[in-house]
């Protein structure tokens, strides 16, 4: 018997807050969706947004291509002294970030307000 489960489709919502932007990532950043995340982040980095906050509370999965999209945005942000901040990844994603040591690049915050403090 074949049972197909449907993981949550990726939804990206961008909320501008002054010269910052909060990107809510909902669902799965799988291999076929990672380009959408890359494009969304690229648009923000092209606008030289100073702080991009990725709200990961409802992101249940991300593949290496998705991680790569975040790293590319991090590198572009650095050109204009911008930052990428992560908020509340679920446990499995947090462990993935630790396994890859990307917690060395990205600071993880407990709340969006905390990530935006001082912006």
């Amino acid at each position: 018997m074949t049972i197909t489960t449907h993981n949550k489709p990726l939804q990206l919502n961008v909320n501008r807050r002054g010269n910052a932007a909060v990107v809510s990532v909902v669902g799965s950043v799988s291999m076929s969706d990672a380009d959408r995340l890359r494009e969304a982040l690229e648009k923000l980095t092209d606008e030289r947004i100073s702080v991009i906050v990725l709200d990961l509370r409802e992101m249940d999965f991300i593949c290496s291509v998705g991680l790569g999209a975040i790293i590319v945005a991090y590198l572009k942000c650095r050109h204009h002294a911008g930052q990428i901040k992560l908020v509340c990844p679920v446990q499995s994603v947090r462990e993935l970030l630790e396994t890859t040591r990307l917690t060395k690049l990205f600071r993880i915050y407990d709340s969006i307000d905390g990530a935006l403090a001082g912006v």
């Binding site: 991680l67 790569g68 890859t100 060395k104």
Partner: peptide, 8 residues
């Protein structure tokens, strides 16, 4: 760490 690929 800053390379966007090579983690698979």
């Amino acid at each position: 760490l800053e390379k966007p690929f090579g983690r698979g």
